[in-house]
Amino acid sequence: MFGPVWRFGRIVDLMPEVQRLQREMNRLFSGVSQPFSQDFPAINVWSGEKEIIVSAELPGADPDGMDISVVGESMTLSGGRNPEALKEGENYHRQERSSGRFSRTLQLPFRVDAANIAARYGNGILHITLPRAEADKPRKISIKAE
């Protein structure tokens, strides 16, 4: 009598795998899958004890036109780049690089010390160092033995 119940349990265990396969198949044939999110710019985040570092690839951006603002625990990064201005008689063979304005808001894992945020832009890569606010740093609680 326990046989079918046990077997049923096995089928249930298989379901996530079947669903995953189905998703994979749908993804394969739909042709709309994107390997990464379409939020621009793509970012990487490094976390340390005292700070987090956010990096973004922004080739050809104007560092003076970039704006980083922090409100509470969210950071907004905005900027843009202008398309190449072509003269009369010049024409594109191909145009794959995007241009225009972008703005992206990130949720930070903790409150940051807004006065000490440092941003560095070099070789088309932006690095933003966001130090954790002093009041928000974890405190070590000592345990007293009785």
């Binding site: 990487n44 490094w46 340390g48 570092i53």
Partner: peptide, 11 residues
């Protein structure tokens, strides 16, 4: 960054 861990990556 040797003292940091990559916690989130999009690229």
């Amino acid at each position: 960054f040797p003292e940091h861990n990559l916690v989130y990556a999009e690229y």
